[in-house]
């Protein structure tokens, strides 16, 4: 079971997070100020930390910097208040691995925590040459994708999209995550532009097969299942 440490001074928000994560079978420990959070971090035993930017006393950035200085390299998801445009940059510079702006959808939080936890499991950040999800096989070196015996011809971006979905197979990924991780842009596209790309990939992936692998999760995003 994934263990998450939440450092958030807003107790209600922290409890909501904890509840949402529990639904996804993730256990969350709550701390409500920076000092306690840092002590808990030093004690270890967590897979991911959710860190609020604004806290009385030791704030998120200071905590993160100190933790990184102490050699604690646990994946960190940084939370910041709405519209603090520079916070994303500060957070990432201070050593955060991912970033989420309040208010966020719980599904988005869960998806990102899962992605971070997976990264920690792999340790290497995924240097494997071949990705496999069920009958789907992606060779990262020859860039050949097969589902069973059938080779699937993908455009470069579709390849990246599928790679991200395969690395997060079995988990929901949101549209914003896809835009961030596959296109490397951080903004809210406001339209179904990502959906169109996913539909195209789905058409290539599931065409001619009885069972669909790429699913739309209502209100959340997408999920690749074996």
């Amino acid at each position: 079971m994934t263990q998450v440490l939440i450092v958030e001074d807003d107790v209600d928000a922290a409890l909501t997070m904890q509840k949402g994560l529990r639904e996804a079978n993730i256990h969350a420990t709550l701390t409500h100020d920076g000092e306690t959070g840092l002590r808990a971090l030093r004690a270890g035993a967590f897979d991911v930390v959710i860190l609020d930017r604004m806290m009385p006393g030791l704030d998120g950035i200071a905590l993160l910097e100190r933790a990184r200085q102490e050699g604690i390299d646990i994946p960190v998801l940084f939370l910041s208040a709405l519209g603090e445009l520079e916070d994303r940059v500060y957070g990432l510079k201070a050593g955060a691995d991912d970033y989420l702006t309040k208010p966020y959808a719980i599904v988005e939080l869960v998806a990102r925590v899962e992605a971070l936890a997976r990264r920690k499991d792999n340790g290497t950040g995924g240097l494997e040459a071949v990705l496999k999800v069920g009958a789907l096989e992606m060779n990262l070196i020859t860039r050949i994708v097969r589902r069973g015996d059938q080779e699937i011809d993908l455009q470069p971006r579709e390849f990246q999209l599928l790679e991200f979905l395969m690395r997060n197979a079995g988990r929901s990924v949101t549209r914003t995550m896809l835009l961030e991780k596959v296109w490397a842009y951080h903004f809210d596209p406001q339209t179904n532009v990502i959906d169109v790309h996913v539909s195209r990939l789905r058409a290539k992936l599931d065409k001619g097969f009885d069972r669909a692998m790429l699913h739309t999760v209502r209100g959340e995003g997408y999920q690749l299942l074996p």
């Binding site: 709405l82 940059v89 702006t101």
Partner: peptide, 24 residues
């Protein structure tokens, strides 16, 4: 969600206008 997005957008615009320059 739509309302939140709207809020985000309005907030971003206001910040841009108030700061008079693009961040980062």
């Amino acid at each position: 969600d739509q309302l939140l997005r709207t809020f985000q957008t309005v907030f971003a615009m206001s910040r841009l206008e108030a700061q008079g320059k693009a961040p980062d």
